[in-house]
Design a binder for these strands. Sequence first.
DNA 1: GGCTTTTTATTCGAATGCGAAAAAACCCTA
DNA 2: TAGGGTTTTTTCGCATTCGAATAAAAAGCC
Lengths: 377, 377
Amino acid sequence: MRKNPIVQRETLGAAVLQIRSGRATSRTTLAKALGISPSTTGLYVDHLIAEKYLNESGLNQGPMGRPRRLLSTQANAGWFAGVEFNAQRIQAVGVDFSGGLKVSEEVILPADVMADEVVKSILECVAKLAKEMQGPLLSVGIGVPGLVDAQAGVGLYYAFIPDWQLVPLVEKIGSKLKVPVILQNNLRAIALAERWFGMGHSLNDYVILGPRSGFGVAIVQDGRVTEGAHHAAGEVGRWLWPLMDPAGGGQELHHALSAPATWRRLAGVGEKTNLPEDLRAGLAAVAESAGPQWDAVCGDYARVIGLLHLIIDTGVFILHGPLTMLGERFCHSITEAACALMPALRDAGLKVVPSTLGDNAGALGAASLAMEAWSPA
Amino acid sequence: MRKNPIVQRETLGAAVLQIRSGRATSRTTLAKALGISPSTTGLYVDHLIAEKYLNESGLNQGPMGRPRRLLSTQANAGWFAGVEFNAQRIQAVGVDFSGGLKVSEEVILPADVMADEVVKSILECVAKLAKEMQGPLLSVGIGVPGLVDAQAGVGLYYAFIPDWQLVPLVEKIGSKLKVPVILQNNLRAIALAERWFGMGHSLNDYVILGPRSGFGVAIVQDGRVTEGAHHAAGEVGRWLWPLMDPAGGGQELHHALSAPATWRRLAGVGEKTNLPEDLRAGLAAVAESAGPQWDAVCGDYARVIGLLHLIIDTGVFILHGPLTMLGERFCHSITEAACALMPALRDAGLKVVPSTLGDNAGALGAASLAMEAWSPA
DNA sequence: GGCTTTTTATTCGAATGCGAAAAAACCCTA
DNA sequence: TAGGGTTTTTTCGCATTCGAATAAAAAGCC
């Protein structure tokens, strides 16, 4: 038996992430992925197996040579909670140690909810999840609407909860649950969800399009989620739109491209018409429409995406939220319109696709936050 | 005497950078800046002093305690070459080991110059610099126009040199000079110049505005220069402009905001009017103008900057190139116009400032590339 | 079956980097 | 001028990490 060194916890966490994601499958591949020597990697893996975080799961015979001893995460070593919320509802998921989604919860919030009630509901939600999960809760990720200081663990501002200002969420939740709590803006959390559960798996550069009650984007560059100097990267909803309004009385992009606004424009109804009971169903109903409204909406999206793409040069734009109901055709129309407007985009391989993740993408992203932050004690 | 370990070269390079930039001035501050222990730092510094890269330059008494033994770089330990070029000219600088600018060179290129001639001229230019510099040449940085694959060391494409396609510059220059050669897009090189020689010293997030024969930007986020998935980040000159052209026959932003176009618009002359002999002087002459042209130009700049700022949330925009001749007033007008158009910008602390670096900012940035890449043998 | 070849994992000595403690160099005060 | 306080630098022992060699486990080949 090898001696058991006091290994670095951070590196242990990184090793688990590599194994869980499938980027590394054996000791040697793990060594390469972590950039440490094979001998040290062996010690780390021994430690993680001894602590029941990993196990060996068979052999993988390559074309030649000694077969790899496959490593995998022990699903019941503990679990991660992912929570996302806005002014209307809380969504939460429980994810096992192998990254498998096990339980979902949803809580509808009352109108005019206050910050303290939200915190209370989040705690209740996590408690409900805990009943169905195995092992100890390891960490909690929270996708927070509005401006968030992820480092400080504070929700800075959110327009639709009246007293949501400088809310020390990490402290409030962490002091009750006694586990690490990690925050991130909810759209940026979705970006992480794509990485762990969606199509971002193999991508290093992509943009999340998030048209909901407003319009925002989350940007992933070279594998890193862009935060911004004031935690406000991706707040494109505050763009003047139309940009060249000759009258000067411009509006914000929010008003043109939010999910409700998009439905109204596609349905050809005015601002005074009530929204349908179920916006998603309403959107599905107009998914086949055509004509000038369709072109106008796609043209606006095309312009926004074209501007974005030529700045940050990512490649794939992943559409999230209710507008995914408009399907592939919507995304394709946008792509085509953008390339028609700005020919440079065609060479740059612009592509808009609807997300394959469902409504709980934000909660899954929050769970990703929790997984990324965890290291063994 | 302490024993002399075989230290890691990369860390030695990083240590020299910290000392040269003044971010670290003593062994202890260096240890903090590098994130390694004071004891190890002591060994590294000993090594660097023994190799004549650093020396001790007096004491710095704080309010209390043992004074710091100040460290500084040995100016004559060698030198770095920085080269920038476009289709018209080559600019080169020689920078000593302490980061001091010592020599500048400029070569005017003939019309319709070919790639091979450019390479030859660069080599001649560096040879000329070498005569005036002390010590050995340590590395060369090159600011390359157009698309650049910095990692591969290849110039991918530049429209104004006919055969500038897939030029293996690092190989061509490196094989002659026998020192490391580092490439970067010339605008992104300017971003580095701001960091080392300009106002980026204390900034982690800023944007370089580069209106010249076209219009592009370079983005620095959290201290890193944004490259883009296809080496094309910041190519905003290819935006459709005006963005909402109802006729559909849109142009590129290049045509509206390049340095010549800006002069024509401010001077109120058409596309057929010849440019002044000296564009900078011409621009200085229209710097005091006012009225609708002035507002229109500033409005366009304000829109571009507003869009950029709300995406990437940096803060400071640094204007480079001939348009700096328009002075503080121009930048101030843009800032004001942007805040008027998009009120969100006012809270976000948007600021546009002219660069204090002169015409050779690109070459200085290239030298910064060289400095950042160097490590002792 | 024994041989080589290839790839993965482990062993083991060497040494690099760290932490704690000591030393050094200054201030201030009495 | 001696002593306490403070900060920087160095010393020194220790242990983690590495590198090179070794062992292990398979395939292919005669």
